[in-house]
Design a protein around this nucleic acid. Structure first.
Lengths: 155, 155
DNA sequence: CTACGAATTCAAGTCGACTTGAGGTCAAGC
DNA sequence: GCTTGACCTCAAGTCGACTTGAATTCGTAG
């Protein structure tokens, strides 16, 4: 029955207390009890926070992450979704690599101004034909499959 | 003297007219003339817009991109900055690769729940030790070196 | 008992890059 | 001359993930 203060959780997880309250507000984590007004957290929340952090790193939104926890609180990540995200990451990587190589080349190019560098011009063409997949952008479809998030005032 | 209407520019560049007006407002592009109220653009703006698009793809903010155009309007990108950004991209790629491999492994793992998968647990540990470099995040320092941007009402 | 510090609530603010909407103007075609 | 539609301005709204601030309430140490 050793429960943690919010400050304790914040320190040990690296997640600011304000963010913890926010996560609770949107139903991403929960506090087990109160001592007076103060939230008391089950130490399990630390694992859950790692999980959340990992999800964020992988480019999932908080909504999507929330959807990955089953009713039992156990993480329940559809394997298909993981694969899809891995493929997305793959695509992003390719874009990044292209870009990195181009930047390096241009940085080392002897042409007096960048506009005179042939590979720079080539890069510009490529970039305007199809934008490199860099930012995590997802098709419209997925969003509509997600449950709506309760807004801040909702009850 | 063939100048382009904003609609023409929008169509040919893929950048919405509202965004073009916004770019002009923040001084990122300019229109050469007006015909009545209507902005008339020099076709050169199309190249400039490619350049801007490329910059965005590379993770530069509009402020940074604006700073890359010299007073003459010629792009003037410090080679050092390009190299630094290329290195940053490199770091992001490594993070993405790690993550991609982990996701793939977990997706294919035979363990009944993800929490029981040893590599998943290992991944969690890694993720909480040092967050993977994924999102373009820049050191504080750089920001302060940039000129302030005129706000929307400023004159 | 009192002071202190750590938490609390709730509303509002922040950031970047735009988009949206209301209401107005203008050039060209009929 | 009138309509249409593309454009204009300006203010305000949007999105996600939080942060900040003001006013308040606790638990604990002295």
């Amino acid at each position: 029955m050793l429960l943690l203060d919010i400050g304790e959780v914040a320190e040990r997880s690296g997640v600011p207390a304000s963010a913890l309250r926010y996560y609770e507000e949107i139903g991403l984590i929960r506090s087990e009890a109160r001592r007076g007004l103060r939230r008391q957290y089950d130490p399990d929340v630390l694992l859950r926070l790692s999980l959340i952090g990992l999800g964020k790193t992988a480019g999932f939104s908080l909504d999507e992450i929330a959807a990955m926890f089953g009713a039992d609180g156990q993480p329940n990540i559809p394997r298909e979704q993981l694969r899809a995200r891995a493929d997305e990451l793959q695509r992003q990587m390719i874009g990044l690599r292209t870009l990195r190589d181009a930047l390096r080349h241009v940085a080392d190019c002897r042409a007096p101004t960048h506009l005179e560098c042939p590979s720079f011009r080539a890069l510009l063409k490529t970039a305007s034909r199809r934008p490199l997949a860099y930012a995590p952008s997802r098709p419209e479809v997925e969003k509509n499959l997600l449950p709506k998030r309760r807004k801040r005032g909702d009850r």
